[in-house]
């Protein structure tokens, strides 16, 4: 919620790539705060800086100037080990290409990031079951990816993204390959994850999906061209 300190802060970041033809500005200067429990969507034409923004937020890239502060830690000063740890423990990535391992069951796929992080197998399995329950797939935990529908596979990928205590979900066009109803269910799921306290940053071309977020940020030429805040639901009377 807004009163909590931001989980992710981009402070005046710019990212310039270097090519033979000279420097190519990709993003910024841009500032963005993401508070715990917030769901923010990024839209914009190709080349507007969406993917660069997501890479900076996910500690997969470093800004040319400015600061990225994730879970209170300034990434500029972080050692590679510390960065890797943040990527493993704080951030979950969801892509259109799910990268589920076909030889592992849904539960094993979800448990994998924890096991790679040396969580004891029993606790990893327990956390995976919990995550699959949250996405409504507990009954399919022992199925292999090939025996699941596209929507179910995407839910497994989402469960894998937030398994354990990871708080920041970064999603890049996660519904690209799904039909309308299934895609909408993925948005419903991301939305409910943020109401449960996780934070989500979604990159999408689909305006109807972006409209599930609390804020829609529209990028053009690496800059924020527009920001539209969703209306709040009427307060429920106790």
């Amino acid at each position: 919620m807004k009163s909590d300190p931001p989980l992710l802060q981009l402070v005046n970041v710019t990212r310039v790539y270097h090519s033979d033809a000279g420097p190519v500005p990709a993003l910024g200067p841009l500032s963005l705060d993401l508070h715990p429990g917030e769901f923010v969507a990024i839209m914009g034409p190709s080349g507007s800086g969406k993917s660069t923004l997501l890479a900076l937020a996910g500690a997969l890239d470093q800004p040319t100037a400015g600061q990225v502060i994730l879970a209170g830690q300034n990434l500029a000063g972080a050692t590679p080990t510390a960065l890797a740890e943040l990527r493993r423990r704080v951030i979950g990535y969801i892509f259109q290409d799910l990268n589920l391992l076909p030889g592992l069951t849904a539960a094993e796929n979800v448990a994998l990031p924890l096991e790679l992080d040396e969580t004891p197998a029993a606790s990893a399995r327990q956390a995976a079951t919990q995550a699959l329950t949250e996405v409504g797939l507990a009954h399919l935990a022992q199925r292999f990816p090939d025996d699941l529908s596209g929507g179910e596979q995407q839910r497994v990928a989402i469960a894998r993204a937030f398994v354990g205590h990871r708080r920041l979900l970064l999603a890049d066009e996660p519904t690209g390959a799904l039909d309308s109803v299934t895609g909408e269910n993925v948005m419903r799921l991301l939305h409910s994850q943020t109401r449960a306290g996780r934070t989500a940053l979604l990159v999408t071309h689909n305006a109807a999906h972006a409209a599930w977020a609390d804020r829609v940020i529209y990028l053009r030429d690496g800059l924020v061209a527009d920001e539209v805040v969703a209306p709040q639901p009427p307060a429920t009377t106790p």
């Binding site: 305006a207 109807a208 972006a210 409209a211 599930w212 829609v216 527009d226 539209v228 969703a230 209306p231 639901p233």
Partner: peptide, 10 residues
């Protein structure tokens, strides 16, 4: 239009 879309989605 985005605001309208957000209202419908809500």
């Amino acid at each position: 239009t985005m605001q309208r879309l957000q209202e419908y989605t809500l």
